[in-house]
């Protein structure tokens, strides 16, 4: 029993160590209309961690990927505004995805 508990604890510690984000932290992302038909998205986490390297995807209303990339060192991703209706997914892993629809972008 004691050995099982130790193994479970070790596995939990390992899981937390390799997880890209701690489970208690919320993913946050806002997108804004910028000049020259650009859209700027900025991400972050409620514990203040950087969003550098987090995946971001722009999809149409049939969930086809229009473009994808990663947040830069300033936790920002900028792209040309698509001609079709679109939404943005800031994807920091399970339970840490933020979806922003086009009508939320001002």
């Amino acid at each position: 029993m004691k050995a099982e508990l130790s193994a479970a604890l070790a596995s939990l510690i390992f899981g937390l160590a390799v997880s890209p984000v701690a489970v208690a932290h919320n993913a946050i992302c806002n997108c804004y209309e910028e000049p020259d038909n650009q859209v700027l998205c900025e991400g972050g986490f409620s514990d203040g961690a950087s969003a550098e390297g987090v995946d971001i995807r722009v999809l149409d209303d049939r969930e086809r990927v229009l473009l994808e990339g990663k947040m830069d060192a300033d936790s920002i991703f900028t792209f040309d505004r698509p001609d079709v209706f679109f939404h943005v997914i800031f994807d920091a892993g399970d339970n840490h995805r933020v979806v922003i629809y086009e009508d939320e972008i001002e």
Partner: peptide, 9 residues
């Protein structure tokens, strides 16, 4: 103002 985003910035 003094602004900062996150711990590392």
């Amino acid at each position: 103002l003094v602004s900062q985003r996150g711990d590392a910035a």
